[in-house]
Amino acid sequence: MEHFALWLSAFLTLGILSFLYKDNPWYKLSEAVFVGISAGFWFVTLFWDNLVGKFWDGWQDEPMLWVGAVLGFLMLLRLVPRIGWISRWPLAFIVGATSGLWLMNYLASNIMVQVQATIQSLLSTSYASGYDAGWGAMINSLVIVVGTFTGLVYFYFSKEHKGAFGGAARVGIFFIMITFGASFGYTVMSRMSLLIGRIDFLLGDWLGLIN
Protein backbone atom coordinates (compact mmCIF):
# COMPACT_ATOMS: atom_id res chain seq x y z
CA MET A 1 0.00 0.00 0.00
CA GLU A 2 2.85 2.33 0.90
CA HIS A 3 4.49 1.67 -2.48
CA PHE A 4 1.23 2.31 -4.27
CA ALA A 5 0.84 5.68 -2.49
CA LEU A 6 4.43 6.58 -3.36
CA TRP A 7 4.00 5.75 -7.04
CA LEU A 8 0.64 7.53 -7.17
CA SER A 9 2.19 10.67 -5.63
CA ALA A 10 5.02 10.57 -8.18
CA PHE A 11 2.54 10.02 -11.03
CA LEU A 12 0.43 13.02 -9.97
CA THR A 13 3.47 15.24 -9.32
CA LEU A 14 4.84 14.53 -12.81
CA GLY A 15 1.34 15.08 -14.20
CA ILE A 16 1.19 18.59 -12.71
CA LEU A 17 4.78 19.33 -13.84
CA SER A 18 3.88 18.23 -17.39
CA PHE A 19 1.96 21.52 -17.66
CA LEU A 20 5.35 23.16 -18.18
CA TYR A 21 5.35 21.54 -21.65
CA LYS A 22 1.68 22.18 -22.48
CA ASP A 23 -1.85 21.35 -21.43
CA ASN A 24 -2.39 17.59 -21.82
CA PRO A 25 -4.65 14.76 -20.61
CA TRP A 26 -2.17 13.74 -17.89
CA TYR A 27 -2.27 17.27 -16.44
CA LYS A 28 -6.07 17.36 -16.76
CA LEU A 29 -6.34 14.09 -14.82
CA SER A 30 -3.96 15.29 -12.10
CA GLU A 31 -5.75 18.65 -11.89
CA ALA A 32 -9.16 16.99 -11.57
CA VAL A 33 -7.90 14.60 -8.87
CA PHE A 34 -6.25 17.47 -6.98
CA VAL A 35 -9.31 19.74 -7.16
CA GLY A 36 -11.82 17.00 -6.36
CA ILE A 37 -9.92 15.55 -3.42
CA SER A 38 -9.04 18.94 -1.95
CA ALA A 39 -12.64 20.22 -2.25
CA GLY A 40 -13.87 17.07 -0.50
CA PHE A 41 -11.15 17.36 2.12
CA TRP A 42 -12.08 20.96 2.91
CA PHE A 43 -15.76 20.10 3.09
CA VAL A 44 -15.07 17.37 5.66
CA THR A 45 -12.60 19.56 7.58
CA LEU A 46 -14.98 22.51 7.81
CA PHE A 47 -17.88 20.23 8.73
CA TRP A 48 -16.05 18.58 11.61
CA ASP A 49 -14.11 21.66 12.76
CA ASN A 50 -16.87 24.25 12.55
CA LEU A 51 -20.28 22.60 12.54
CA VAL A 52 -19.44 19.78 14.92
CA GLY A 53 -16.29 21.03 16.70
CA LYS A 54 -17.51 24.55 17.42
CA PHE A 55 -21.29 24.72 17.14
CA TRP A 56 -22.56 21.24 18.01
CA ASP A 57 -20.14 20.75 20.92
CA GLY A 58 -20.46 24.26 22.31
CA TRP A 59 -23.92 25.72 21.66
CA GLN A 60 -25.09 25.03 25.21
CA ASP A 61 -22.21 26.98 26.81
CA GLU A 62 -21.90 29.73 24.20
CA PRO A 63 -25.21 31.29 23.12
CA MET A 64 -23.40 33.58 20.67
CA LEU A 65 -22.76 30.54 18.46
CA TRP A 66 -26.45 30.64 17.59
CA VAL A 67 -25.92 33.97 15.84
CA GLY A 68 -23.43 32.32 13.49
CA ALA A 69 -25.67 29.29 13.07
CA VAL A 70 -28.68 31.43 12.15
CA LEU A 71 -26.62 33.52 9.70
CA GLY A 72 -25.29 30.30 8.16
CA PHE A 73 -28.80 28.96 7.81
CA LEU A 74 -29.94 32.20 6.14
CA MET A 75 -27.16 31.69 3.57
CA LEU A 76 -28.73 28.37 2.63
CA LEU A 77 -31.98 30.12 1.73
CA ARG A 78 -30.39 30.86 -1.64
CA LEU A 79 -31.49 27.36 -2.52
CA VAL A 80 -35.13 28.53 -2.28
CA PRO A 81 -35.53 31.02 -5.15
CA ARG A 82 -38.67 32.67 -3.72
CA ILE A 83 -36.93 33.80 -0.51
CA GLY A 84 -33.34 33.65 -1.78
CA TRP A 85 -32.93 37.40 -1.22
CA ILE A 86 -32.70 36.78 2.54
CA SER A 87 -29.24 35.31 1.97
CA ARG A 88 -28.01 38.86 1.36
CA TRP A 89 -28.43 39.66 5.06
CA PRO A 90 -25.62 37.43 6.34
CA LEU A 91 -23.45 38.70 3.48
CA ALA A 92 -24.18 42.29 4.51
CA PHE A 93 -23.36 41.36 8.11
CA ILE A 94 -20.00 39.86 7.10
CA VAL A 95 -19.04 42.83 4.91
CA GLY A 96 -20.07 45.36 7.57
CA ALA A 97 -18.43 43.53 10.46
CA THR A 98 -15.23 43.02 8.45
CA SER A 99 -15.01 46.70 7.55
CA GLY A 100 -15.61 47.79 11.13
CA LEU A 101 -13.17 45.34 12.66
CA TRP A 102 -10.37 46.06 10.25
CA LEU A 103 -10.79 49.84 10.32
CA MET A 104 -9.25 50.14 13.77
CA ASN A 105 -6.70 47.36 13.20
CA TYR A 106 -5.40 48.93 9.99
CA LEU A 107 -5.42 52.37 11.56
CA ALA A 108 -3.26 51.07 14.39
CA SER A 109 -0.90 48.85 12.39
CA ASN A 110 -0.64 50.67 9.04
CA ILE A 111 -0.75 54.27 10.23
CA MET A 112 0.10 54.63 13.91
CA VAL A 113 2.92 52.07 14.02
CA GLN A 114 4.30 53.27 10.67
CA VAL A 115 4.32 56.88 11.84
CA GLN A 116 5.98 55.89 15.11
CA ALA A 117 8.67 53.89 13.31
CA THR A 118 9.35 56.72 10.88
CA ILE A 119 10.05 59.31 13.57
CA GLN A 120 13.83 59.02 13.64
CA SER A 121 16.59 61.47 14.38
CA LEU A 122 18.39 62.67 11.25
CA LEU A 123 21.49 64.04 12.96
CA SER A 124 22.11 62.16 16.16
CA THR A 125 24.57 59.31 16.02
CA SER A 126 22.83 57.28 18.69
CA TYR A 127 19.45 55.63 18.80
CA ALA A 128 17.25 55.43 21.83
CA SER A 129 18.47 51.87 22.32
CA GLY A 130 21.85 53.29 23.13
CA TYR A 131 24.23 51.94 20.54
CA ASP A 132 26.53 54.30 18.70
CA ALA A 133 25.67 53.82 15.05
CA GLY A 134 27.44 56.68 13.27
CA TRP A 135 26.96 57.73 9.66
CA GLY A 136 25.43 54.44 8.59
CA ALA A 137 22.52 54.92 10.98
CA MET A 138 22.03 58.52 9.85
CA ILE A 139 21.77 57.43 6.22
CA ASN A 140 19.47 54.63 7.26
CA SER A 141 17.21 57.08 9.09
CA LEU A 142 17.22 59.43 6.11
CA VAL A 143 16.18 56.61 3.75
CA ILE A 144 13.33 55.59 6.07
CA VAL A 145 12.05 59.16 6.56
CA VAL A 146 12.35 60.25 2.91
CA GLY A 147 11.10 56.91 1.57
CA THR A 148 8.00 56.88 3.78
CA PHE A 149 7.19 60.53 3.21
CA THR A 150 7.53 60.44 -0.58
CA GLY A 151 5.75 57.08 -0.70
CA LEU A 152 2.78 58.71 1.01
CA VAL A 153 2.95 61.56 -1.49
CA TYR A 154 2.67 58.99 -4.32
CA PHE A 155 -0.50 57.55 -2.78
CA TYR A 156 -2.09 60.97 -2.32
CA PHE A 157 -4.92 61.00 -4.87
CA SER A 158 -6.29 64.53 -4.46
CA LYS A 159 -3.54 66.30 -6.36
CA GLU A 160 -2.07 65.85 -9.84
CA HIS A 161 1.51 64.62 -9.85
CA LYS A 162 3.05 67.80 -11.25
CA GLY A 163 5.83 70.19 -10.22
CA ALA A 164 7.52 69.67 -6.85
CA PHE A 165 4.70 67.41 -5.71
CA GLY A 166 5.13 65.27 -8.81
CA GLY A 167 8.89 65.17 -8.18
CA ALA A 168 8.30 63.92 -4.64
CA ALA A 169 5.85 61.31 -5.94
CA ARG A 170 8.48 60.19 -8.49
CA VAL A 171 11.03 59.77 -5.71
CA GLY A 172 8.39 57.81 -3.81
CA ILE A 173 7.75 55.39 -6.66
CA PHE A 174 11.54 54.89 -7.01
CA PHE A 175 11.69 53.85 -3.37
CA ILE A 176 8.71 51.54 -3.85
CA MET A 177 10.21 49.90 -6.96
CA ILE A 178 13.60 49.37 -5.31
CA THR A 179 11.78 47.73 -2.40
CA PHE A 180 9.86 45.52 -4.81
CA GLY A 181 13.09 44.54 -6.56
CA ALA A 182 14.64 43.40 -3.30
CA SER A 183 11.40 41.65 -2.33
CA PHE A 184 11.25 39.90 -5.72
CA GLY A 185 14.65 38.29 -5.29
CA TYR A 186 13.93 37.31 -1.72
CA THR A 187 10.54 35.78 -2.53
CA VAL A 188 11.84 33.89 -5.58
CA MET A 189 14.43 32.25 -3.38
CA SER A 190 11.75 31.22 -0.89
CA ARG A 191 9.60 29.82 -3.74
CA MET A 192 12.54 27.68 -4.78
CA SER A 193 12.02 25.73 -1.59
CA LEU A 194 8.68 24.51 -2.99
CA LEU A 195 10.42 23.17 -6.10
CA ILE A 196 13.23 21.69 -4.06
CA GLY A 197 10.63 19.90 -1.93
CA ARG A 198 9.09 18.18 -4.97
CA ILE A 199 12.47 17.33 -6.55
CA ASP A 200 13.58 15.92 -3.22
CA PHE A 201 10.47 13.75 -3.22
CA LEU A 202 10.99 12.53 -6.80
CA LEU A 203 14.73 11.86 -6.59
CA GLY A 204 14.85 10.82 -2.94
CA ASP A 205 11.62 9.19 -1.73
CA TRP A 206 10.54 7.84 -5.11
CA LEU A 207 13.69 6.95 -7.08
CA GLY A 208 16.07 6.71 -4.12
CA LEU A 209 18.84 8.49 -6.03
CA ILE A 210 19.63 10.87 -3.19
CA ASN A 211 19.61 10.41 0.57
Binding site: I111, V115, S121, S124
Partner: peptide
Protein backbone atom coordinates in the same frame (compact mmCIF):
# COMPACT_ATOMS: atom_id res chain seq x y z
CA UNK B 1 -10.72 62.43 -0.13
CA UNK B 2 -11.24 61.75 3.57
CA UNK B 3 -8.53 59.08 3.44
CA UNK B 4 -6.24 61.63 1.85
CA UNK B 5 -6.79 63.85 4.88
CA UNK B 6 -5.57 60.93 7.00
CA UNK B 7 -2.39 60.78 4.88
CA UNK B 8 -1.84 64.52 5.34
CA UNK B 9 -2.19 64.10 9.12
CA UNK B 10 0.38 61.25 9.00
CA UNK B 11 2.80 63.35 6.93
CA UNK B 12 2.48 66.36 9.25
CA UNK B 13 2.98 64.24 12.37
CA UNK B 14 6.01 62.51 10.83
CA UNK B 15 7.57 65.84 9.85
CA UNK B 16 6.99 67.38 13.28
CA UNK B 17 8.19 64.20 15.00
CA UNK B 18 11.39 63.92 12.99
CA UNK B 19 12.24 67.61 13.54
CA UNK B 20 11.44 67.34 17.28
CA UNK B 21 13.51 64.18 17.76
CA UNK B 22 16.45 65.53 15.78
CA UNK B 23 16.56 68.78 17.76
CA UNK B 24 15.86 67.08 21.09
CA UNK B 25 18.71 64.60 20.66
CA UNK B 26 21.26 66.79 18.92
Amino acid sequence: KGQDVGKVIAMVVMTVGVIALTFAEA
